[in-house]
Simulated scan of single mutants.
Amino acid sequence: MWWIYALLSALFASLTAIFAKIGVSNVNSDLATAIRTVIILVVAWGIVLFKGENKGLQHISRYSLIFLILSGLATGLSWIFYFKALQVGQVSKVAPVDKLSVALTIVLSVIFLHEALTLKTAIGALLIITGTFVLIA
C-alpha cells in the first residue's frame, strides 16, 4: 500500500512544480511560498481535526518535537529555494535537480540512520544522479 501513497506523492509533487511555476511568474517567490504554506497549514490541520488526531498532541515527546521542528525548518527552506529556482529557471530543469534529494536522502540515511546500502540502492542513486545531469545539461 505504501507505493500507492508514494505514487500519489510523486503526482502531486509534479503538479506542485507546474502550478508553482505558473504562480510565481509575477509574484515574489518568498511571498508565493508564504501563501502556499498557509494553504498547507489549513489543509493539514483540517485533516487532523476532522480525524480527531489532535488528541495525541500532548503525548509527543520532546525528542520527537525537536526533530519535527527541524524537519519543518528544512521543509520551509527547501520550499523557499525551490520557488526561487522555479521563478528564475525552467521547471523541466529545476524539478530534476530538486529530485536529487532522493539520492542525498539515501546517502544521509546510511550515515545518520545506519540503514544498509545495498548494491541495488547504490546503483539506483547513481542512476538518479546521472539522469539529473543528463536532463539539465
Rank of each mutant, 00 (worst) to 15 (best):
129 I>E: 00
133 F>C: 05
118 T>N: 05
133 F>I: 14
136 I>S: 00
95 A>M: 08
27 V>E: 08
127 L>I: 14
99 K>I: 00
80 I>M: 10
92 S>Y: 06
96 P>F: 02
126 L>T: 10
52 G>F: 09
105 T>K: 06
92 S>R: 03
71 S>D: 10
30 D>E: 14
15 L>S: 09
26 N>S: 14
72 G>T: 05
54 N>L: 11
43 V>C: 10
87 Q>M: 08
42 V>N: 05
132 T>C: 14
108 L>A: 13
124 G>I: 01
23 G>L: 00
68 L>R: 08
41 L>C: 13
127 L>H: 05
13 A>F: 14
58 Q>N: 13
16 T>G: 02
12 F>M: 15
88 V>G: 06
40 I>S: 11
38 V>K: 03
69 I>G: 05
1 M>W: 10
90 Q>D: 14
4 I>L: 15
130 T>R: 02
104 L>K: 02
60 I>S: 05
16 T>I: 07
94 V>E: 01
111 I>Y: 02
73 L>V: 15
73 L>K: 03
61 S>P: 00
81 F>L: 13
72 G>S: 07
82 Y>G: 00
66 I>H: 07
96 P>C: 06
60 I>Q: 04
31 L>V: 15
13 A>T: 11
92 S>T: 12
85 A>D: 04
76 G>I: 04
102 V>L: 14
37 T>G: 02
36 R>P: 01
113 L>Q: 04
2 W>R: 15
137 A>N: 12
114 H>G: 05
59 H>V: 05
18 I>C: 03
134 V>L: 15
127 L>A: 10
6 A>I: 12
27 V>A: 08
3 W>N: 07
45 W>D: 04
31 L>Q: 10
36 R>D: 03
18 I>D: 02
132 T>E: 01
37 T>W: 09
131 G>Q: 05
84 K>H: 12
19 F>S: 08
50 F>N: 09
112 F>V: 03
75 T>Q: 12
63 Y>Q: 15
5 Y>C: 12
83 F>K: 01
14 S>A: 14
